[in-house]
Every structure is written in C-alpha cells, then in structure tokens.
C-alpha cells in the first residue's frame, strides 16, 4: 500500500498510462463520460466522484464485433494496449460476470480474452454517489475490493495507491519514485471515507424503501407469475435500454450478413431479453410471450441464475437502468416490492 501526493497525480497517471490508449472520465454537467484519448490530460480528465454514464463492459465486450468472414482463419482485428482510469467498483465488479461467461466457462471467447488482457484497470474509490446508486443493496460497496490492477483512494492527505494484480505491481514500480509507504493516518482516513460514503449510499437506498442486505434472490424467485410483473411491465416499452446500459448484462446475438466482396461475415452484437422474440424458436413458440414474463426473466437472470452458478448477483447497483428506462421503471422499486411481498 502506497501514498501518492496530490500534486503528483497527473505525473503518476501519465507514467502508468505511457504508450497506451487511455480511457478516462470527463465531466459534463453532473455526469461523467468514459472517453478514449491518446494520453491522460490534466484538467480535462478527472478520476470522477462516481461511475460514468457508459458501462465499462463495452470496452471488453464490444456492442458489435465483426467475428470474421466464413472460412477465414485469421484472428480478428488487433486491440491496442489500453488503460482505463477512474473505473468505479460497480463496473469493475461487473466484469466478474463477463469473465465467468467469456473466459472461465469453456470455450474461451477469443475477442473478449484479448480485450481483457490488453486493458489495464486503474480504479478509484467513489467519493460521492449519484442519486440512483444503490450498490449496498446488492452486497457491493462504493470502492473496489478486487478486480483492479491499481486502485486509488482519494484522501485529504493524498492518494492511497494499491496494486491488485501482478501487472499492477509492475506498473507501480515504474512510478516508484512518486510513491512512499502509506502511513497509518492516510489509511485511517481512507477507511473513514469509505465507511462514510457506504453509509450515505445505504441511507439513500433505504430511503427508497430497499433494505440493504435483503434476500433479493428469494424475493425474485418467489415473485414469479405474480402481479408485480404485470404492473411494472405496463410501463415497459421493450426498448432494451436497461440491458444495453447494464454493467453486467452479457446476452448477445450472432448475426450473419454479407461484408466486403460479398463475403459472408458473422457479427456478435448485444441483445436484449426484453425483446419479444429473444426466446422465440423457429416454429413460433415463445416461452415468454408476455412482457411481464420477460421483465421477470431479466430479474431472474440477475438475482437467481447468477447466484446459483456464480454465487453473486448480476447487478452491482450502478442504477444506470433507472436513468435509461424509457418507462421510468426503477429497479429499486421493483426489488422493494418483491421483498415486501415475500
């Protein structure tokens, strides 16, 4: 654990990001955007107080990937070495879902593997929460515990810098002269900051009526077929925004078409389980004909399937779906009602 002086932050980030494409946060009004650039730019880029609008998953699981032409054995386009600076815990933790799907369950997805290997993650503790944040309700917290290469914790005394992987340690060596051992006072301040923000997010979540620590798996499983889904589905317009903006949603479609020189090409593109024909078979049968069934399915995947196969919810409480939903369906209100009706 190291300490970095505030005045050295820009130098430090320029050092660790040298020769890499940089994905950093830029502030626009009350929001942050994750934007690609050639280098870390002081003044323009920021570590951000909370997560950006765009989910981190899009960097490693692209919205649309050209997999290649038929009979083509050449690997896909090369992904440059890159570094993400300022990623927040919800996004970092979400990658455990994508890692499970694309890396740790055979066969390995080569495009994901390459993107993941070429992406260094420099995360940062949240220093504030946006209105829709509710990570403590899904057993997460506004600072990362794992999944980062380097994590920064801002304090009044400077930054606590922690390596979370071997390549993170190697990068820190490059910036060695800017780092000193973290002292007890700065670590204490970091812990206090973390606790204070956790309590704040907890309080705002509970103000919405959602109890932190409630058994969401049981609530969602027991709610199947009940009126709650008909009621919320009334506002769903099946736009799929919740899926596309979600930091954990991983469903996709393989689609074929004709590319250059009329060559057959195959793409892998994000899909949405709210779309009517997501599960329809060629003969026309659809196990989820009703929107209410599809809405429940989305929650079931997140709060039942992933706890069963991976031991964690596939929701990190980022609240992006609350902001994106055309019908103003609030996941916190849905979960609250499911828990209350248990």
């Amino acid at each position: 654990m190291y300490k970095l002086e505030k005045t050295n932050l820009d130098d430090f980030l320029r050092t660790v990001s040298k020769d890499r494409e940089v994905y950093a946060l830029e502030q626009a009004g009350s929001q942050y955007h994750l934007i690609r650039s050639d280098a870390w730019q002081a003044g323009k880029h920021t570590l951000g107080a909370f997560r950006p609008v765009e989910p981190l998953k899009a960097l490693v699981f692209h919205p649309r990937d050209l997999l290649g032409s038929l009979g083509d054995t050449a690997p896909g386009a090369d992904i440059p070495e890159r570094i993400v600076i300022g990623a927040k815990n919800c996004d970092v933790s979400a990658l455990k879902i994508h890692d499970y799907v694309f890396l740790n369950t055979a066969p390995v997805d080569p495009a994901y593997k390459e993107a993941r290997e070429k992406t260094i993650i420099v995360s940062c503790d949240c220093t504030d929460a946006c209105e829709v944040c509710f990570c403590p309700a899904v057993r997460e917290q506004p600072y990362p515990k794992a999944g980062f290469d380097i994590n920064l914790s801002p304090t009044d005394r400077g930054y606590v810098v922690e390596a979370g992987s071997e390549r993170g340690r190697q990068l820190l060596e490059k910036a060695g002269k800017m780092l000193s051992a973290a002292d007890a006072a700065i670590l204490k301040e970091r812990d206090q900051n973390r606790q204070k923000l956790l309590e704040k997010v907890c309080a705002q979540t509970e103000k919405m009526g959602l109890t932190c620590g409630a058994d969401l798996r049981q609530a969602v499983e027991k709610s199947q077929g009940k009126k709650i889904w008909d009621d919320f589905a009334e506002d769903c317009v099946e736009c799929g925004a919740c899926n596309l903006i979600c930091c954990t949603c991983h469903c996709f479609l393989l689609a074929d078409g004709r590319g250059k020189n009329n060559a057959t090409s195959r793409v892998r593109q994000w899909d949405s389980c709210l779309y009517k024909n997501f599960a329809t078979v060629a003969g026309g049968a659809n196990p989820r004909r009703h929107r209410a069934e599809r809405l429940h399915n989305r929650f079931d995947k997140k709060f039942s399937f992933f706890p069963e196969v991976l031991g964690c919810y596939a929701c990190d409480g980022c609240g992006r779906c609350v902001e994106a939903c055309t019908g103003k369906i609030d996941i916190r209100k849905v979960l609250k009602r499911a828990v209350n009706e248990l």
Partner: peptide, 14 residues
C-alpha cells in the same frame, strides 16, 4: 427445443 444463438452457453438465449 429452445432458441439458441451461440450454442456454447454464452449468448443467454436458451
């Protein structure tokens, strides 16, 4: 019989 896309347990359809 389920709607399948990837066939290898990744795309989520089935």
């Amino acid at each position: 019989e389920k709607n399948m896309s990837c066939g290898i347990g990744k795309c989520g359809h089935c």
